[in-house]
Amino acid sequence: MPFTLATWNINSVRLREALVVKLMTEHAPDILCLQECKSPVENIPLDQFRALGYSHMVARGQKGYNGVAILSKLPITDAGDRDYAKLGHARHVAARLENGVVIHNCYVPAGGDIPDRAENVKFGQKLDFLTDMRDAFRADRPERSILVGDLNIAPREDDVWNHKALLKIVSHTPIEVQHLADAQQAGDWVDVTRQDIPQGLLYSWWSYRSPDWDSADKGRRLDHIWATPDISSAAHGSRILRDVRGWDQPSDHAPVFATFDL
């Protein structure tokens, strides 16, 4: 039975509850993975989500920042979490479908503004987080798994509006791109979005700082869907819902979708 999965950095699930409901109503993914929920788990507003058929949730939360949640129409069970780099942040949670597929929802640290760990603790935390992910995948190679989330790195030249201009900007620096590639290779993860859309500029994030994000179009592809090789061929239909970035009081991220025939 196929299912459609979406990942979206919502930038406060309580503030943007109406946008989550709108996405559920208009696009109806079977599974919706949210990052930056900024809420303790018990305060996530579930009533309207459940009314729309999202009766299952696995989540980890914190007051005011971070937080990840997997909302599902399909039955899921809690498959644990990992505190990468021992930051004490709610940045990872996993859920298992009845067919055994495990979904990992990740929110990699943004890394601050200065791409130098000696000057910027947050940048070092980001690199350490990715290194710990790499080591975890090497120690226990994932199978029948999907990893989604705001990974806060645009790895390819066509994942940013201007490759040369962003080489020294956090999210596209060579050291970050290499750390992400090391983690991806350690788990043998397949970038499902680029498997389906191999060529061309592709973005999922546009800064709030841009007065006219749509016409300026200075985007980056920070949000990703990966799958292990044993199920990656079952993925198709990848798309980024750019129009969602233009909804009222939006997140600065757009949802990324993929369908899996599993």
Rank of each mutant, 00 (worst) to 15 (best):
M1T: 14
P2H: 14
T7G: 11
W8A: 10
N9R: 00
N11A: 09
S12Q: 13
V13R: 04
R16W: 05
V21E: 14
K22G: 11
M24E: 00
T25D: 09
H27F: 14
P29S: 06
L32R: 08
L32G: 09
L34E: 01
C37Y: 10
C37F: 09
S39F: 01
I44E: 10
P45R: 03
A51E: 05
G53S: 02
Y54K: 00
V58L: 00
A59C: 00
A59D: 01
R60N: 06
G61L: 04
G61M: 04
K63R: 13
G64N: 04
I70L: 07
S72P: 04
S72A: 05
K73F: 05
P75R: 06
I76W: 11
T77V: 08
T77I: 13
G80E: 05
D81V: 14
D83K: 09
Y84V: 05
L87W: 11
R91P: 00
H92E: 11
R96L: 15
R96G: 06
G100W: 04
V102F: 02
I103R: 05
H104P: 03
N105Y: 01
C106K: 13
C106N: 15
Y107A: 01
Y107M: 03
P109C: 02
G112S: 06
G112A: 07
D113E: 15
D116T: 07
R117M: 15
E119G: 13
N120L: 13
V121P: 13
V121E: 15
K126Y: 03
L127M: 08
D135I: 02
A136K: 06
F137K: 08
R138Q: 15
D140W: 08
R141T: 05
P142D: 00
E143Y: 10
I146C: 01
I146E: 02
N152V: 11
N152F: 11
A154E: 03
D158G: 00
V160R: 05
W161F: 07
N162V: 11
H163R: 15
K164C: 12
K164F: 14
A165G: 08
L167T: 15
S171N: 12
P174S: 12
E176D: 06
H179F: 13
L180N: 09
D188Y: 09
W189N: 03
W189A: 03
T193K: 11
R194V: 04
D196N: 04
D196K: 02
P198W: 03
S204K: 09
W205D: 01
Y208K: 09
S210D: 12
D214L: 15
S215W: 11
S215E: 10
A216V: 10
K218H: 13
R221V: 15
W226C: 07
T228A: 07
D230Q: 00
A234Y: 06
A234H: 07
H236L: 06
G237W: 00
R239C: 10
R242H: 12
R242L: 09
R245A: 08
G246Y: 14
G246F: 14
Q249R: 15
S251A: 07
H253K: 02
A254H: 03
P255G: 09
V256R: 00
A258L: 08
L262C: 08
